[in-house]
Write a protein that binds this DNA or RNA. Structure first.
Lengths: 222, 222
DNA sequence: TCACACATTAATGCATGCATTACTAAATGC
DNA sequence: GCATTTAGTAATGCATGCATTAATGTGTGA
């Protein structure tokens, strides 16, 4: 309905994001508009439009004569991002609990939790990571605040850049799913404060872990 | 240092934002790129770039053959926005308290509160509004989280669109400054939880008022 | 009279070209 | 030999033109 036709600019946006996540455009590296346009097989105009959007999302910076700089994420940045996610996701948990969703509306959330359990049992970190994303995304969806969703999507993008590396370095998130289940139960039972506080504690803990890993390894991220 | 030279695109961005706030481009109205470019005395390219940025900030929508649509803000939207502001500003208050800022660092915050008192005494709503903005902006600044600052700036823009009208309709915010002082004192004393909870309650109250006014008058905003 | 199809109009998306400007390097003066 | 200035180069910001495509209006047939 309100769909836009797939323009070259949108293709460039998706492709550039992909290149950043894949590490083809590493953090801190500089690239000229012309080069990127050539790589993407289109003219500078749509590429430039995509770059402006990505700049607005905080993934890169346009420096007038020095090219496009992919922004690195310092431990401090990651802490800031996690703090935002903590607040907004906790709000979502609270609102989701207040909304009194039916069991069927909560099915996706529960499925994500189940999938995380399976992934942990199988030792499949990638599958766990994917299911974890799904859980957080669905949580925000159930919260029903569109602006929160937009912001969390943006920030999650940045977290995803770091996750690939931190996943291998951090302890297996075996206990994390207990928290998820508690949050789920609280939402199901309509216990707003419980949902909020539980999720908040969960996210604070996750933040400590990630930031700890980043600092320990002196990493600035991709 | 990291300043960008003032390009036409940035001028267009500022000017368009101004036109939206001033009501020259009313909520729900449609405008063609060509017309806007003509009004701004520049070619379509920089105007288009500015429009893309504004779309990213949620102020408008680019509809392929129907022109640029200025997005209205419903009471629901305003409630969503206030919820985000509540969470992120409360976080800022907490972090500001934890940071242990010196008295001189807190001077601007206190000045904003004093100015609000003066404005209320003088019955000057515009001055009050300006000082209130300053208080919230400074609070976020003291919180020290750059992403929070960016998000709050964006959301505040949207609130400002509604404020001009709600100001005249809502009760005089005489008591509101007591809250501000309590938050200030808590930050000064390093009482993080107190700062957080006080500010949270303050914002929740403000949300009720504004959303109430919007719903009562069935307003969709500029 | 209504519906469908075709043609015309016009806005957008993109490519391209040009002018401006910043960076580099070389040359001259001290 | 070093510093300063100037010339050359190259990337960006913007204007412009074109092609595509959607919307509107007209005409014809049932």
């Amino acid at each position: 309905m309100t769909e836009k036709p797939i323009s070259n600019a949108l293709r460039a946006l998706a492709k550039l994001r992909e290149m950043i996540f894949a590490g083809d455009l590493p953090a801190g590296s500089n690239h000229l508009e012309t080069e990127l346009a050539a790589q993407l097989n289109m003219s500078r105009t749509p590429v430039r439009e995509a770059l402006l959007m990505l700049e607005g999302q905080g993934l890169l910076e346009l420096q007038p004569r020095k090219g496009v700089r992919i922004l690195p994420i310092s431990p401090r940045d990651m802490a800031d991002i996690y703090d935002v996610l903590t607040e907004l996701e906790s709000l979502s948990a609270e609102q989701a609990a207040k909304a009194g969703h039916s069991d069927s509306a909560l099915a996706l959330l529960e499925a994500a939790i189940d999938d995380m359990d399976k992934a942990i049992a199988a030792g499949d970190l990638d599958a766990w990571s994917e299911a974890d994303d799904r859980f957080h995304k669905e949580l925000v969806q159930l919260g029903g605040n569109g602006r929160v969703k937009a912001i969390v999507d943006m920030m999650s993008d940045q977290v995803r850049r770091a996750r690939a590396i931190t996943l291998a370095l951090r302890p297996l998130p075996t206990k994390s799913n207990d928290d998820h289940r508690k949050v789920f139960q609280a939402i199901k039972d309509g216990q707003a404060n419980m949902a909020r506080d539980t999720h908040r504690a969960h996210r604070c803990h996750a933040k400590e872990i990630i930031v700890g890993v980043l600092e320990k390894h002196r990493l600035r991220f991709i």
